[in-house]
Computed example of a mutant assay.
Amino acid sequence: MISSDFNPLEPLTADAARLYADLEDTGRRAMEALRTIDPVVSEELFATFESEDRAARWLISRTIGFGGRSALELLSQGDREEVMHVLHHLRYGFCA
């Protein structure tokens, strides 16, 4: 049982909260940048997720579909078509 005098999880909880806040901020900034540099991807993200916040979270989330990388990582490496392909499948389904 954790002592009420010192809880080693408290500082870790604060660290995690800061990391999540930073990650959300990164997602918002990435969406802003995409609106300028690739409005088509930006529009597809918004159309797929119907929310800027959900689109931003997906953009920065690492997924199995991208080999453990995020869509943001792929876009920064120039792999736009793979991101667009996955967005298309998410939006219209695999049979479309």
Rank of each mutant, 00 (worst) to 15 (best):
S4E: 13
D5I: 07
D5M: 07
D5S: 12
D5C: 09
F6G: 04
N7A: 02
N7G: 01
N7E: 07
P8F: 07
P8Y: 04
P8S: 01
P11W: 12
P11E: 05
L12M: 13
L12V: 10
T13S: 11
T13Q: 15
A14I: 13
D15N: 10
D15R: 14
D15P: 00
A16E: 06
A17F: 06
Y20G: 03
A21F: 02
D22V: 03
L23Y: 10
L23I: 13
E24M: 10
E24L: 12
D25L: 15
D25P: 00
D25R: 15
T26N: 06
G27M: 03
G27S: 03
R28D: 08
R28K: 14
R29Y: 04
R29F: 05
A30S: 13
M31A: 07
M31N: 02
E32W: 00
A33H: 09
A33K: 11
A33E: 13
A33Q: 14
L34P: 08
R35D: 05
R35Q: 10
R35N: 07
R35W: 00
T36N: 07
I37A: 13
I37F: 04
D38I: 00
D38N: 14
D38K: 04
P39C: 01
V40D: 00
V41N: 01
V41W: 01
V41S: 00
S42C: 13
S42Y: 12
E44H: 12
L45Y: 00
L45G: 02
F46G: 01
T48D: 05
T48L: 06
F49H: 06
E50V: 10
S51I: 12
S51K: 02
S51C: 09
E52D: 10
E52M: 13
E52S: 10
D53W: 04
D53F: 08
R54M: 10
R54E: 14
R54S: 09
A55V: 07
A56K: 01
A56P: 05
R57E: 09
R57F: 09
R57Q: 11
R57P: 02
W58Q: 03
W58L: 06
W58S: 04
L59S: 05
L59A: 07
S61P: 09
S61I: 13
R62Y: 03
R62V: 13
R62F: 05
T63V: 15
T63S: 13
I64N: 10
I64E: 14
G65Q: 15
F66E: 07
G67F: 12
G67D: 11
G67Y: 08
G68S: 11
G68E: 11
G68Q: 09
R69D: 10
R69T: 10
S70L: 04
S70E: 06
L72A: 11
E73R: 02
E73T: 15
E73P: 03
L74H: 02
L75R: 02
L75G: 10
S76V: 04
S76P: 03
S76M: 06
Q77G: 09
Q77E: 14
G78K: 03
D79R: 09
R80K: 15
E81N: 12
E82M: 07
V83P: 04
V83W: 02
V83E: 01
M84N: 05
V86P: 01
L87V: 03
H88N: 12
H89W: 08
H89A: 14
R91E: 08
R91L: 04
R91W: 04
Y92V: 10
Y92D: 09
Y92W: 12
Y92A: 07
G93Q: 04
G93S: 06
G93D: 03
G93W: 05
